[in-house]
Design a binder for these strands. Sequence first.
DNA 1: ATAGCCTGGTAACTTAAGTCACCAGATAAA
DNA 2: TTTATCTGGTGACTTAAGTTACCAGGCTAT
Lengths: 205, 205
Amino acid sequence: MRTLQQYLQGLPPEFIDQLETYGIVKDFSAQTEILREGQYVKYVPLVLEGAVKVFTRHEEKELLLYYIESGESCIMSFNAGLKSTASKVFAIADENALLLLLPVEKLHEWVISFPSLNELFFNLYDQRYASLLDTINHLLYSRLDQRLYNYLQETARQKNSKVINIRHRQMAAELGTAREVISRVMKKLEQEGKVKQLQGGIEIL
Amino acid sequence: MRTLQQYLQGLPPEFIDQLETYGIVKDFSAQTEILREGQYVKYVPLVLEGAVKVFTRHEEKELLLYYIESGESCIMSFNAGLKSTASKVFAIADENALLLLLPVEKLHEWVISFPSLNELFFNLYDQRYASLLDTINHLLYSRLDQRLYNYLQETARQKNSKVINIRHRQMAAELGTAREVISRVMKKLEQEGKVKQLQGGIEIL
DNA sequence: ATAGCCTGGTAACTTAAGTCACCAGATAAA
DNA sequence: TTTATCTGGTGACTTAAGTTACCAGGCTAT
């Protein structure tokens, strides 16, 4: 395992010192819940390895919002932490994930002392915001085949593999639709030569 | 007309000094375009009076994202300004609006020197983000009648009047749908006793 | 005044998506 | 092995919304 310095190169040494003193490095195994909806946040996670999936939920239906990848953090818990409000989303570890947990009581101080942390969060906000805008435009103007294909491509990019191991039922959940619909649309994408369904997986062509 | 101090009470005096030196107060008449899509941002607006409407656009169809009200600013131009990237949204003055324009070249410095500005933008980010999440959930899970009713209620709140002067065609544009559909759904809402259509306006009951 | 536009209404049709009911093959558990 | 569970497929149906093609009333500019 690498040291914090190696993960955080580029940050000011005094900041890394602070992170080593007050931060907590923690391992989460795949599919573990990291943040619950409505939960009050005591630690803001910074992803060192692996990835975290963030979802919104609305009356039993959920929707995948985005991945938090290595070097990134979670703006929802950042804000929920800073303002002591409840989280509006929930997050689970995608693969096994190594997180650096930042205690919220230090955050106020750090964003002022370390402009790079401040900037990181502004950048993340912007990035997530842009991705929500994208999601909105897709929801409003794209049909499901397009959304599904984007989703598969994004997943392939994230997993860094053209073959994805995933069930129809999970795709349905992450896109906020029904399993039968995914089944129908997947077949359409297959006929169009965009994907290929293997036993227990999908290949993006 | 009031002075900047009166608009900005609560901010540190040194910051107000800076704002008076470098900021530009400008009037925009109703329906004027304030920010174009793809535009590079030189000034970030802070709303002193009136309100600004922010839209996203996707292939000729638009969708109202939110209002910027007095004391608030525009995170999209804030980020577009800080990072010198193109704006992903466009904005127009709703009523006549009085804006304080903050030159972007001062922003980097100000967010560091004045934590209250920093905090303002973090709060705004969070607020807008939450509202996008809401929009997403509505798009995914609500039918248009619900969305339209929410939209009317929000507009009524924003205009501070139970009677709204608006055309069906504009509602359709702001909700990203077609005029005929609005006509159909408005009639449904009227039958349900939720609204009343007057000549050239709508009363929310 | 009248021609032209803006506005809202409406019927008929199409389509994407959600829902229901069920089935068959694969896999895991008893 | 035999049962139960998970997975994907499919046909039939329903529904919300988008689309097309009109029409009528009101307003306005010449």
